[in-house]
Design a protein around this nucleic acid. Structure first.
Lengths: 252, 252
DNA sequence: ACTGGTCCAAAGGTCAGACCCAATTTAGCA
DNA sequence: TGCTAAATTGGGTCTGACCTTTGGACCAGT
């Protein structure tokens, strides 16, 4: 009889029961991240995974879907299709940042603050690590800006230049962040019609001067000039933002 | 006969045929991002979505899984469970950055470069926008560091302090990035036994001095001191990294 | 030798229906 | 009244079938 006398009092902490699909997803994720499969390695077909794991196809597919959204595999349909290992790139970071910015309706100021934090460092790194190719990309982007006819074209080329600077720095993290910020800036600046001839000229001049510093491998100058440029741009954008807010006082 | 003479050469770009689950996921995503549903709003139950969309439950569930991975909904089981709208937070950014860092086996230097770019700005913003609460969190974290006994504890408290600085800056993007970098630093610094008494003392002193600047709302000093601190830390970590590389010359 | 047509096979995509498990409500009983 | 047990509502998993897409092979006509 197990009466009131001292039971050994086994204590257990609350446990988590993971979902089957998560278990499989985690297993595969770890394997992929461990680097044991080079990019492009095909995973077994779904039906094969089913017999290997003894899970249902539904579960297997859910696991694969998770990894796909996380950018760890790419899935193709049709014969010779299947799931292929893919090492995550800047895009997935950019995507999630975009969700954060859009979903939280972040103040435009946050985006600009982040830019002001990051871009000077990108410029500095670019001046240190740029290759000849990087330099070509930069000048090409600059010329596209100068030649741009429409607003669309201008904004796109502008974004391209900034991303090119980040790329020239050869730091994948900063590049990813920069790509995300660019997209956000692009879409927010899009409607505001503040890009007149003046703005364009000033932009081109600023870009040229930063590009020169990068070409001459002068990190300090690059960072300094980029700081000025981004700061000015932020001020202008925010000013327009205010103006728009006043023009449309009943907005949202 | 269609001989060698000019065929009109109609050009089409490759077309995308979206999957059903993606269609639904996109629709729901746009609605959520548009902000029309406040945080916590329950989506209809899966079976209800099935009748509304006339898709199968499998498809509906796949769409929901996508949104869940993207951090846009949270799914609970059980009665009164279901999918609830969730605006994406810093975590999802941190997650994707972590995947990037781990999956691409990025040089430790990338992480440190990024930190050197971001943390001074975080400190500057913190000095500008900190609240009394933020300050309390900072000093608390600092005391935990000073009192930390084990390596684990020290690293965790260290990370906490840095995240607290970012938080005090009240910029969600920078905070998210900082969280991700912290995790990465934590896991990489973990094995290397370079945290001796000296390092700890220096760290605490540096943190104190930054915290003071934040308390006194002196942005320039905060940024300057943080720059020094992070730079020193990076150098030390990289030095240890080199040493480890020499000690274990056959490591991958 | 090119072009187009037909068919096959492999693999992912979708579907319908059943059943299992978890959390909450609620009803019933002490 | 208060507690336990059942009913209910919801997600999680499984099965098995069928649809669609893609690549390749083969064939027939020019």
């Amino acid at each position: 009889m197990t009466s009131s006398e001292a039971r050994p009092s086994i204590r257990l902490s609350p446990m988590e029961v993971p979902k089957a699909s998560d278990v499989l997803a985690n297993e595969l994720r770890e394997r992929i991240l461990s680097g044991e499969y080079p990019e492009g390695t095909p995973l077994p077909p779904e039906r094969e995974l089913v017999v290997q794991t003894r899970m249902s196809r539904t579960t297997v597919r859910e696991a694969l879907r998770i990894l796909e959204v996380q950018g760890l595999i790419r899935i193709k349909a049709g014969r010779a299709g299947g799931a292929f290992v893919q090492h995550p790139g800047e895009e997935s970071v950019a995507d999630s940042l975009e969700l954060l910015i859009r979903g939280r309706r972040l103040r435009l100021a946050s985006v600009h603050e982040t830019r002001e934090a990051i871009e000077p460092s990108c410029a500095r790194l670019a001046a240190q690590h740029r290759t000849a190719d990087d330099l070509r990309a930069l000048t090409a982007a600059n010329e596209t800006i100068a030649a741009s006819a429409s607003l669309e074209e201008f904004l796109q080329a502008n974004v391209d230049w900034h991303v090119a600077v980040a790329t020239a720095g050869h730091n994948e993290i900063l590049t990813g962040i920069m790509m995300a910020l660019s997209r956000a800036i692009y879409t927010t600046t899009h409607n505001e019609g503040f890009v007149d001839e003046d703005v364009r000229l000033i932009t081109v001049r600023a870009h040229r001067s930063v590009t020169r510093a990068i070409r001459d491998k002068d990190p300090d100058a690059a960072a300094r000039r980029m700081t000025r440029h981004v700061h000015a741009y932020a001020e202008a954008a925010l000013a327009v933002d205010d103006r728009t807010a006043i023009t449309l006082p009943d907005g949202e």
